[in-house]
Amino acid sequence: MSFYESVFVNVGIMIIIAQGVYVITGLTGLFSLGQSSFVAVGAYTAGFLATRFEMHPLLCILAGIVVSILVSFIIGIPSLRLRHVYFSLATIAYCYALQAILTVSETFGGSIGLVGVPVVTRWWHVVLGVVATVWIVRNFKLSRFGLACLSVRTDELAARTYGIQTFVSKQIAFSLASAISGLAGGLLAFNLGYLSPDMFTVPVSSEYLIMVFFGGLYSQTGAVLGAAALTVLMELLRTTAAWRMIAYSTIILIIILVRPNGLFGTWEFSLDSLNPRRRAKHGLAKGGEGV
């Protein structure tokens, strides 16, 4: 695997993670600072099965997704009752707790980490993952559940008054986001071949959130391109050595201040917009408020 491919794989994994953040934050309006711990669940499950039982990577990744969904219920059922900022708080708590558990657990390698996961992720695996994720998220967004999530984001109380089961909607979005993070985690495990608890901290979660904001919180396209742009930017800044983090943070801050809605705001890429005839038919005004 060449350097470009490995950057490409990293970009792809970040895009998948950003899709998860988009579902839970962009669509549903819940600020999760614990998304990295769902990546951790997927990664550690996959890595553990691969090193201990030498299972096929695909099965490991699937198992990682399943475990992520299970965990999302364990975490979601209590914490989704909490509103607004309290939910963010609960996700921070979860992130700290999972990190402590992974650190003390001998099974998962403790602080030394999980060593010896085969390095098998190739670019087409990631392309498949990205395409599938983007497709699922797009359909979810346009489905009944997606609209319910959107109503929760806009006004939870009003949504409830209209008979939307807000808790169920939130749980579905949360589980979907976790499943997506789990997938990213699995790919990460087989890309890096090594996992340690300090790769999945609260500051890492906040970086994911910043990526989605950078692209445009209410735009799926923005989430994809934001994640890609910032991952590439980080790599490009490698040659700036000690200035790297300052440059990176400054660029993000400027974008957030100049374009608070992110680079893409609520704009969505669609195949229709490439087709002039259909474009004329639909009119140029696409998509209103971030649908």
Partner: peptide, 22 residues
């Protein structure tokens, strides 16, 4: 209890408090 697992205990307990008294 165990200092290494203490973040899990501390933050778990705090979430429980928030659930009981939002």
């Amino acid at each position: 209890i165990n200092a290494a697992i203490s973040p899990a205990i501390t933050f778990g307990l705090l979430v429980v408090i928030l659930l009981v008294r939002p």
